[in-house]
Design a protein around this nucleic acid. Structure first.
Lengths: 113, 113
DNA sequence: TTCGCATATGCCGACCATCGGTATATAAAG
DNA sequence: CTTTATATACCGATGGTCGGCATATGCGAA
């Protein structure tokens, strides 16, 4: 287990991608690009390093392996701990976003606006 | 000007802290701790480095300086560009959080959690 | 038939924001 | 007299991400 500090956006989106159902590495890359509306394109280096790290932290686990067209597909799934963690992080993001929006609305001019 | 990559949580909260009205460095530290409900304690190194960076990116600007009890207070304010950027980031966080929550709700068992 | 693209996993060096500690200084509290 | 709070600032270490590369298969285009 680990000490759980804040998740970066790529890691958050990887967990999100696994929240509905298990996926394999390359599937996560395309899924993350889709759910972020093309804004986040995971690099292979980022993905597989993150997968190893998240697994060693107990947030995800290997689900199964398949071979399709001679290519290996290694599926990962969210663990119970990973689900809790993702829910916590989502709540944090929502709170941060809400605070920012509220403060932007009640803005007071500083010096020169 | 800048290249606008994703903002980390500390930087996001610094901008949020300045969104309502100008603040000085130490005030930002206490404010961020408050709005994050004690979860994020900015280190001095993080804060002043971030302040320099955000200023060089045009997201914040020096507002004024005051001397209180023989101690300097340097106030910063959010620029117009900084406000736009913060609003964009807040929208992204909200979207990411919503996606995660939705997926967690429609969860399909992978193997054993 | 060879080139490029999509699929698929994985390694490795570089970058840089954050972390953690330290330095400096004043004033109030213990 | 030392700790805590206020206040700014530098610096080395950490670590997640970036960007590129390697490897391999199958498919469609030039």
């Amino acid at each position: 287990m680990s000490k759980s500090r804040g998740l970066q956006e790529p890691s958050f989106l990887i967990l999100t991608s696994l929240a509905h159902e298990p996926q394999h590495g390359y599937g996560i890359i395309t899924d993350v690009e889709r759910i972020s509306q093309g804004e986040v394109r995971l690099r292979a280096g980022t993905l597989y390093a993150a997968l190893d790290r998240l697994q060693s932290e107990g947030l995800i686990a290997e689900d199964r392996e398949e071979i399709v067209d001679g290519r290996l597909r290694r599926y990962y799934r969210l663990t119970g701990e990973g689900g809790l963690r993702l829910a916590e992080e989502a709540a944090r993001l929502q709170r941060n976003a809400r605070t920012a929006v509220t403060r932007l609305r009640t803005r007071q001019a500083g010096g020169i606006a």
